[in-house]
Amino acid sequence: MPFGRELFFFYIMALFGLFGKDKKKKLDQGLEKTKESFLSKLTRTVVGKSKVDDEVLDDLEEVLITSDVGVKTTLKIIERIEERVGREKYVSTSELQNVLRSEIASLLEENNTSDVEYDIPKHPDNNPHVIMVVGVNGVGKTTTIGKLAHQFKGMGKQVVLGAADTFRAAAVDQLIIWSERVGVPIVQQGMEADPASVAFETLEVAKAKGADVAIIDTAGRLHNKVNLMNELTKIKRVMQKVVPGAPHEILLVLDGSTGQNAFEQAKQFSLATEINALAITKLDGTAKGGVVIGISDQMKIPVKYIGVGEQMNDLQSFNRRAFVDSLFGE
């Protein structure tokens, strides 16, 4: 009975004409990752060689690509080293490590972001500092919020959490457990409540309590789902009714084991909500950080935090120098 399926076929095509709306062309970008440390790979690359030649550069390309640095940034690094080799005529393989380190460090520095310390700015009228946490599904938003709350509390700050992920099953319960663990108040309206309404109430409560910081959890959303992305704009708008300028910080959480799609996520979320900080999670796994180099190079958003474990204390502020040092095993 082929009629049915043809009808459907046709229908979808016909309907297509009804909904077509132009969308900005997407950009491509890339990352990749690794199991071994940078250093051990690098050592293997140059073993038995005295001079940096094409073969060494090819191997280096492989090291970078498989460390999730991404094709574009990798080529950039290689080009710079090629330039340097051309300029200095002879670069020994033992120097390669130093050269590479300084090139990576300068790539990270060019990206005019400053290393950010945990500090909560003061706002007029004793308004709380508002942080909205966003990201795709399963990157570790709620866990990151728990860790952040713990750190802020340790700094003597008063924290209020807002459970605006009212969509994913038991997401509210998950944040409640964190609030109990950390010992901070939480505002929640249960599952399926309007996220904007939860955010609104959270800010009201935070304001009434004279809290220093309010952290809003949001539902995971894939960045290509337009409606869900628009919802973020709404949450933001509603919050500004309580605290002008809120959210002061929109923290995009990226999974450290994500490949090239991490760039797409950063781009799309930026378009929707003016992301001004990144947190890279799960860096305690086998992927050791090429993703951070790639993102720092390509995006003009500072990497603020990195997640390195499951414990409450396993959230660090990102420090480029320390990061480059750790890549090279120091």
Partner: peptide, 30 residues
């Protein structure tokens, strides 16, 4: 959305629990 680590992780899990199949999630993303 996992990068090259998908393979490393899959290898490591496979060595330990010798799984029968793989489920690829979040393919509705881009």
């Amino acid at each position: 959305m996992t990068g090259q680590d998908a393979v490393n992780t899959a290898k490591a899990f496979n060595e330990r629990i010798n799984f029968d199949g793989v489920i690829l999630t979040k393919l509705d993303g881009d």
